[in-house]
Computed example of a mutant assay.
Amino acid sequence: MATNNVKKVWASGKAVVNAWLAIPSGFSAEVIAQCGFDSVTVDMQHGVQDYLSMVQCFQAMNGHPVTPMVRVPWNEPGIIGKVLDGGAYGVICPMINTPQEAKDLVQFAKYPPKGTRSNGPIRAGMYGSAGSYQQTANDEIVLLPMMETKTAVENMEAILDVEGIDGVYIGPSDLGFSYGLVPKLDRDEPEILKIYEKIIKECGKRGLNPGIHCSGAEGAVRAINMGFKLVTLSNEVGLMSTYAKMQVNQTRKDSAGKA
């Protein structure tokens, strides 16, 4: 198993720039993988991806210098083991609200003696010579529980103390939602920014890497300057529609009413 590029970037002191795939298309994944991202995450929670489309995305990205990751639909051992067997180098898991749920995530994702993951890396095993994958998987796979509720924030320190996680991933929409605010990505409410500051501080104390979902470059740069170590730039749907709208609007505007 090759060294995880996400961990290499973190070790260099830099932040990871992450892509997000909602569209079940190997071709979309292939295009995104050539755009300069450090990692590419297939979204199996809110995207329209399924397991086979995830594998197709991974196959399409193979050969490009990006780390394949997955946001699983839920903290459940079957799907976590299966995405890892399919070749994921990182797992982002939604709605982790308690230290026990974080411990469960670690158990589901790691081989014995650190966890209870079943052996059978059907596709991931092809990353190295026969039998070598199992020797390094526990150390190389990135685990990021999502901190996106008021309950999770209240349990912050206890969750971050769980051995085996590499950081946390903030879902700004759900986090704001749980505090009675409108769901959006780039948050500016003082009470939420205060939570971000505490998460970054507590992660720093433990050598962990906080990540966050952003709507684009402006929000990502702001997050990096705050201290976040992984930033996601929208998703390919958002990037495509934003640029398409911009081009259509510019065409109509600059054609002096001819379009």
Score class of each variant (00 low, 15 high):
residue 1 M to I: 11
residue 12 S to Q: 14
residue 13 G to T: 01
residue 15 A to M: 10
residue 15 A to F: 11
residue 19 A to T: 05
residue 22 A to D: 08
residue 23 I to Q: 09
residue 23 I to F: 14
residue 24 P to S: 10
residue 24 P to Y: 08
residue 27 F to L: 14
residue 33 A to E: 11
residue 33 A to R: 02
residue 34 Q to E: 13
residue 35 C to F: 01
residue 38 D to H: 14
residue 39 S to P: 09
residue 41 T to R: 01
residue 48 V to N: 09
residue 50 D to T: 05
residue 53 S to R: 07
residue 59 Q to E: 13
residue 59 Q to A: 15
residue 62 N to S: 15
residue 67 T to P: 02
residue 70 V to A: 15
residue 72 V to L: 06
residue 74 W to Y: 07
residue 75 N to D: 14
residue 84 L to N: 02
residue 84 L to T: 06
residue 85 D to S: 10
residue 85 D to I: 03
residue 86 G to S: 15
residue 87 G to E: 02
residue 87 G to L: 08
residue 87 G to N: 09
residue 89 Y to S: 08
residue 91 V to H: 02
residue 92 I to P: 01
residue 93 C to S: 14
residue 94 P to I: 12
residue 94 P to E: 12
residue 96 I to D: 04
residue 97 N to M: 10
residue 100 Q to H: 10
residue 102 A to I: 09
residue 105 L to F: 15
residue 105 L to V: 10
residue 108 F to N: 06
residue 111 Y to G: 09
residue 112 P to S: 10
residue 114 K to D: 15
residue 114 K to C: 00
residue 118 S to Y: 05
residue 118 S to R: 11
residue 120 G to L: 07
residue 122 I to Y: 13
residue 123 R to T: 00
residue 126 M to H: 09
residue 130 A to M: 11
residue 131 G to N: 03
residue 132 S to D: 15
residue 135 Q to H: 12
residue 141 I to A: 11
residue 144 L to A: 02
residue 146 M to Y: 06
residue 146 M to P: 01
residue 146 M to N: 04
residue 153 V to C: 04
residue 157 E to Y: 00
residue 158 A to Q: 15
residue 160 L to G: 08
residue 164 G to A: 05
residue 166 D to H: 12
residue 177 F to E: 09
residue 183 P to Q: 02
residue 185 L to I: 04
residue 190 P to N: 07
residue 198 K to C: 00
residue 202 E to A: 11
residue 204 G to N: 10
residue 206 R to Y: 09
residue 207 G to C: 10
residue 211 G to W: 08
residue 211 G to I: 06
residue 213 H to R: 01
residue 215 S to W: 01
residue 217 A to H: 07
residue 224 I to R: 01
residue 225 N to A: 00
residue 225 N to R: 14
residue 225 N to I: 00
residue 226 M to F: 08
residue 226 M to K: 06
residue 227 G to D: 12
residue 227 G to I: 12
residue 228 F to I: 08
residue 228 F to C: 13
residue 230 L to F: 02
residue 231 V to K: 07
residue 232 T to Q: 09
residue 232 T to L: 00
residue 234 S to Y: 02
residue 236 E to C: 07
residue 238 G to T: 12
residue 238 G to D: 03
residue 240 M to Q: 08
residue 241 S to K: 12
residue 244 A to C: 09
residue 244 A to P: 01
residue 245 K to Q: 14
residue 247 Q to V: 13
residue 247 Q to G: 05
residue 249 N to P: 00
residue 251 T to R: 11
residue 257 G to E: 05
residue 258 K to D: 12
